[in-house]
Amino acid sequence: MQVTWGNVTVTFSNPEEAKKYAEKVARKLGGQVELHNGQFRIK
């Protein structure tokens, strides 16, 4: 499962870890987490 924002992509084998990481990054950037085609995207 991947977490992407800007031109950065981070890949996780565990979807739960990916979700936690995406939420943490979104909080830092003041963005929203979207699940899109099996990727968490931060907008």
Rank of each mutant, 00 (worst) to 15 (best):
N7C: 14
G31V: 07
G31Y: 06
T11V: 10
V25Q: 05
Q32W: 15
A22C: 03
G38M: 04
K20A: 14
V10S: 03
G31P: 01
K28G: 06
K24C: 15
K24M: 15
G38F: 04
N7H: 12
K43W: 12
N14G: 06
N14W: 05
F40E: 01
Q32E: 12
V3P: 00
Y21L: 04
G31H: 06
T11P: 05
V3W: 02
Q39I: 15
N7F: 08
H36R: 08
G31E: 03
G30E: 04
L35M: 12
V10T: 05
V10R: 10
G38T: 03
I42C: 06
R27E: 14
W5V: 11
E34D: 06
Y21C: 11
Q2L: 09
T11I: 13
E16L: 13
F40H: 03
E16D: 13
G38W: 03
G30I: 03
K19S: 07
K24F: 15
V33Y: 06
A26E: 01
E23M: 09
L35T: 07
G6V: 03
N37T: 03
A26K: 02
K28R: 13
G31S: 07
Q2D: 09
K43A: 10
R41H: 15
M1I: 15
Q39L: 07
V8M: 12
S13D: 13
Q39E: 14
K24Y: 15
E34M: 07
G6D: 11
G6N: 09
H36G: 05
N37E: 11
L29K: 04
P15K: 14
R27A: 14
G31C: 06
V25P: 00
Q2V: 12
M1W: 15
V33I: 10
K43H: 13
Q39F: 07
Q2T: 14
S13F: 10
A26G: 04
N37W: 03
M1C: 11
N14F: 06
P15A: 14
K19L: 14
V10P: 00
H36P: 00
E16I: 13
E17R: 12
G6C: 13
E34G: 04
E16A: 12
H36D: 09
F40C: 04
N7P: 08
A26M: 03
V3F: 05
Q32G: 05
G30H: 09
G31F: 06
V33D: 00
V25H: 02
N14E: 08
G31D: 02
I42S: 01
R41V: 15
H36L: 14
K19Y: 14
E16W: 11
E23W: 09
W5M: 05
T4L: 09
N37M: 07
Q2C: 06
F40P: 01
M1N: 09
E16T: 12
I42L: 03
V10L: 12
W5K: 01
L29A: 05
M1D: 04
K24T: 11
V8G: 04
A26R: 03
A26Q: 03
S13L: 11
A18K: 00
T4M: 09
F40Q: 02
Q2G: 07
F12D: 00
G38L: 04
F12Y: 03
R27T: 10
Q39H: 14
F40D: 02
M1G: 05
F40K: 01
K43G: 07
T9S: 08
N37D: 12
I42K: 01
L35Q: 07
V33T: 03
A22H: 00
Y21A: 03
E17Q: 12
T4G: 04
G38Y: 04
N37Y: 04
K28I: 15
A18S: 02
K43L: 14
A22T: 01
A22L: 04
